[in-house]
Amino acid sequence: MLWPRLVRALVSRPLTDPAGAAPAETVAALGERLATTARARLGRSLAIREVDSGSCNGCELEVNALQNVAYDLERFGLRFVASPRHADVLLVTGPACRNMAEAMERALACTPEPRWVVAAGDCAVDGGVFKGSYAVHGGVGAVLPVDLLIPGCPPSPAQLLEGLLALLEAEAAPRQK
């Protein structure tokens, strides 16, 4: 049952570019941008370590969706890695919970330079609805030096991808002087 399906998948159109779906078109367009800017700075890949500093897990659902065949993150050379030691980017979701602050700092200390910290989601931007609680410091920026904010509750996979690529462009610019 499996092999015929795999063979059919090999000879049919990729699922990754469904006609008429706006997010997929955005993703495809952004993929071309990555090819020029990311190479200049980091070769062709960007390793991302996702850190959840206290989200409701909505952001994790959308970050995981980035890896499904509709978005196929890896075609852009973007991939998730299991350790901050292998990462170029810390993608942090959720408000900076006090109970997570030390783990966040340790993850940053384990991430080699050059590195970028991305705060993804409204909670990571400024604490979101959890702002002012005794249990949170605020946004991710209250604990880590943040390079990029991606708002949204949760940000859609397309927004997340757009943000990651925007970061690459911004970082690549000074090098081109």
Binding site: G54, G94, P95, R98, N99, F130, G132, Y134, A135, V136
Partner: peptide, 11 residues
């Protein structure tokens, strides 16, 4: 657990 305690009930 408890790492994600956000003080939801208090808020």
């Amino acid at each position: 657990l408890g790492y994600k305690h956000k003080g939801t009930l208090g808020l």
